[in-house]
């Protein structure tokens, strides 16, 4: 096989490989090379069990952003979650951020419910109304032991 053919075939191979990688990264992995304009909001939760960075932020079932960072605040014993929200989605001051599960054992995601105020949150602001993750075990124990009081 001549030098030219080897180079040609290898070139095709490399192109195919890079195309397949790009497909995996962009179409499936959800990487966007052209960073969508966005702003970041913070939200505090008493429990985020199972939420991880990269999880989806939804409003009305539509994806409007992602969880960009999760930190632990040792003073208040709360989880501080950074939400990267698309620039064109306004979030009101009294909007509610809730951690929900897709189906009964599915992925955790953050659900944003719009508020009624006119004041909008800006980059770096905090969403004050939050609902923490509801864990299946707690629900079950509440149901079984009734009331879920710890003195039981």
């Amino acid at each position: 096989m001549s030098k030219f053919n080897i180079q040609l075939v290898t070139g095709i191979f490399v192109a195919l490989g890079i195309a397949a990688f790009t497909y995996a990264a962009v179409n499936i992995g959800g990487v966007s090379f052209r960073e969508q304009p966005s702003y970041t909001l913070k939200a505090r939760f008493t429990s985020i069990s199972g939420l991880r960075t990269g999880a989806v932020v939804e409003a009305a079932g539509v994806r409007i952003g992602t969880v960009s960072n999760i930190e632990f605040d040792p003073e208040t014993y709360e989880a501080v979650v950074s939400l990267r929200i698309n620039q064109n989605v306004p979030v009101q001051e009294d909007a509610i951020a809730a951690i929900r599960t897709q189906g009964i054992i599915g992925e955790k995601y953050v659900k944003l419910t719009p508020g009624g105020f006119d004041e909008l949150l800006e980059d770096g602001d905090e969403i004050l109304e939050t609902e923490s993750a509801v864990s299946l075990e707690e629900l079950v124990s509440k149901y079984i032991f009734g009331g879920g009081s710890s003195s039981q």
């Binding site: 990264a25 179409n27 499936i28 992995g29 959800g30 990487v31 990269g54 897709q102 992925e107």
Partner: peptide, 15 residues
């Protein structure tokens, strides 16, 4: 299902 389940970290792990 494919798009929701697979994150960049998974693709990176494979890489």
């Amino acid at each position: 299902g494919m798009v929701d389940a697979v994150q960049w970290v998974d693709v990176r792990l494979g890489l």
